Simulated assay, not measured.
Amino acid sequence: MAELSPIQPCLWFDDRARAAMQYYVDVFPDSRITSIEEYPDESLDEHFVGMTRKVLNGQFILNGVSFVCLDGGPLFTFNESISFVVSCKDQDEIDYYWSKLSHVPESEQCGWCKDQFGVSWQVIPSNMDELVRRPEQIQVMMRQKKVVIAELENA
């Protein structure tokens, strides 16, 4: 088992942890899966029934940030109360991450989106605080789905 960071987000998937890890490391630069431990054979314990070859503990790094994940079944699901912020240097980077992470159009608002696994992301410019200093800029941002830097600068 790889060494854990002092604080790490842990993502509970129903049964798609392996697919999610692979997807995320393909999206983010400087990323990799560091370990995958699978559930033991289901004949060993009643709690393992149906879990053979699913992820008991997956560890991966996204652009230098350590994550863990697991396949825990449908008991818990993701919601917008937790999200991950992707700080982007320019509009091209925003467009890239938006195209990769936004899969639920009805969840798009003010730079927030939801991916194909139900995880919420905030894809925003690194200078967002400068771009929403004035009420006019905030109003523009509130109408945006994906953040468009030029619209905020021109507000």
Rank of each mutant, 00 (worst) to 15 (best):
Y97P: 06
W98S: 12
V148H: 10
R133Y: 11
M21S: 05
I149F: 05
T34V: 07
N63A: 09
F117H: 03
E93M: 11
S120N: 07
S83R: 00
D71K: 08
D30K: 03
V147S: 01
T52Q: 10
V132I: 08
E93F: 12
F48G: 02
K89A: 06
Y97R: 01
K100M: 14
S35K: 02
V147M: 00
M1Q: 10
A155S: 14
L4I: 03
R134W: 01
R143V: 00
M142C: 13
N79T: 12
Q144F: 09
V55N: 00
D90I: 04
R143T: 04
V68T: 12
F13Y: 07
A2S: 08
A155Q: 10
A19F: 12
E80R: 15
I138Y: 03
V148K: 03
E3S: 14
E37F: 11
F28W: 05
L152D: 01
D90A: 00
V148S: 05
V27R: 01
D90F: 04
D45S: 14
V123P: 14
V119S: 04
T34M: 05
M51I: 08
F60C: 04
I138D: 00
E151H: 13
D14H: 03
Q139R: 13
Q137V: 15
D15C: 06
L11C: 06
F117M: 03
T77E: 07
C113Y: 13
S43L: 09
E93P: 15
Q109S: 08
F76I: 09
V27E: 00
D15S: 09
E108P: 05
S99N: 15
M142F: 06
Q91H: 11
M51D: 15
G58S: 11
M141P: 01
E42I: 07
V49M: 14
R18W: 12
R133Q: 13
I7N: 02
P9M: 07
F48D: 02
K100I: 12
G64H: 06
E108V: 14
I33F: 09
F28G: 01
L4V: 02
Y96P: 00
P125M: 00
D45E: 06
E37G: 11
Q116T: 14
Q109V: 08
L62F: 15
T77H: 05
S126D: 10
E37S: 06
V147F: 01
E136L: 13
Y39R: 04
L101R: 05
